[in-house]
């Protein structure tokens, strides 16, 4: 009862032999060693395991790895530059004290990354609504919402600048 599967994670192709019952999060963490994605509840409520599948935030505990062939999976390990320079979203979390123990953080980052890509013009209230998808036990959420909102604003400003430049 094992299966050969091909997974593309953070742009890299992997051939794996797994039991079909292994969840995506277990395969990412334990078969591929990508331990940045965390496990918090294994029933789809806490969101600590959130990754992007084809760009959309997904609970990796509610998907079997065998279901994810031919998809593009992205984890928290893909956000920073190769030299360790934080992405704008990660830097925003640091600037706003948007993490304490850091356990929910990768899930929050991937949730926000997926959401902002889909809704770059999201309001702070819409961001709060989406952050409500994941649990954090340390921060009281306020600084997470602020971090995501600040990142969204900066991205919008940068976009405006590019548009402004190309118009002139």
């Amino acid at each position: 009862m094992i299966q050969l599967i091909e997974l593309t994670v953070n742009g890299e192709r992997h051939d794996l032999v797994v039991e079909p019952r292994r969840t995506l999060v277990d395969v990412l963490r334990h078969d591929l060693g990508l331990t940045g994605t965390h496990v918090g509840c294994e029933h789809g409520v806490c969101g600590a395991c959130t990754v992007l599948v084809d760009g959309a935030p997904v609970r990796a505990c509610l998907v079997f790895a065998v279901q994810c062939e031919k998809t593009d999976i992205r984890t928290v390990e893909s956000l920073a530059d190769a030299d360790g320079t934080l992405s704008d979203l990660q830097q925003s979390f640091a600037d706003h004290h948007g993490l304490q123990c850091g356990f929910c953080t990768p899930g929050m980052l991937m949730l926000a990354e997926g959401f902002l890509a889909e809704e770059p013009d999201a309001t702070k209230e819409e961001i709060r609504d989406v952050v409500a998808a994941n649990l954090c036990r340390c921060t009281g959420y306020q600084t997470i919402v602020e971090a995501v909102d600040a990142c969204a604003r900066r991205r919008r400003a940068a976009r405006q600048e590019v548009l402004g430049r190309s118009a002139s």
């Binding site: 940045g36 979390f93 640091a94």
Partner: peptide, 9 residues
Amino acid sequence: DPRLLTGRG
């Protein structure tokens, strides 16, 4: 922060 934000904790 850097290690926790990059999944390297």
